[in-house]
Design a protein around this nucleic acid. Structure first.
Length: 183
DNA sequence: TCATTGATGGTCT
DNA sequence: GACCATCAATGAG
């Protein structure tokens, strides 16, 4: 499998969020390979984006978002679920892409249509926060075949507190895919 | 079918 | 002590 290069993540965040659709997320634990096809993402555009955690400033939790692109940002939400993000753009820009849903490809059990479920199925937890996505046990690979997909744009989920930022169409998913968290 | 609520814990003020 | 980029179970209609 061909890993995506660092330069892929060093583009504007919306392009990365759209570009990730159809790619494969791979996590290898104790020799077991967990693979899911990314079908839904959300873009968080940096410190000015009131929905982004980084809008609260540089803190211990958000530190990784301010770093260079191509690293994982994993956080615990509601005390139960781990959510998986990918840091994008140059260091200091504090932007990231949230992976909201994947389609099971290999060794995934249970549902995967939502950020919390996705994290559970792929064995992702906060120990992976700051992990390099060009490593050999946790990375994103090129899609198998060049399948043509249609991308749907929608407002992001669960960010009503972010005023006008909540209305922007920064959630992207593959049209017609059966593993989308919400339509 | 829809709206409401409980579970559960790290982070920040 | 309040707030969450969530999910599943519950109960009303």
């Amino acid at each position: 499998m061909q890993k995506l290069p660092r330069t892929f993540y060093d583009q504007d965040t919306i392009s990365v969020a759209r570009g990730l659709l159809g790619k494969q997320l791979v996590h290898i634990v104790d020799g077991v390979e967990y693979v899911g096809k990314i079908v839904e993402t959300e873009a968080y555009l940096g410190e000015h984006d009131l929905a982004a955690h980084s809008s609260k400033g540089r803190t211990r939790r958000t530190e990784i978002m301010f770093g260079p692109p191509g690293y994982a940002y994993v956080y615990l939400i509601y005390g139960i679920y781990n959510c998986m993000n990918i840091v994008t753009e140059r260091a200091g820009h504090a932007s990231a892409v949230l992976l909201r849903a994947v389609e099971p490809v290999k060794n995934l059990e249970g549902r995967t249509q939502g950020p919390g479920l996705l994290g559970r199925a792929l064995k992702i937890d906060r120990a992976l926060n700051g992990h390099d996505l060009l490593s050999d046990d946790f990375f994103i690979a090129e899609a198998n075949a060049a399948e043509k997909i249609s991308i749907v744009k929608r407002p992001r989920i669960g960010v009503d507190y972010a005023k006008h930022w909540a209305k922007r169409h920064l959630r992207f998913y593959i049209k017609g895919n059966a593993f989308i968290s919400k339509v």
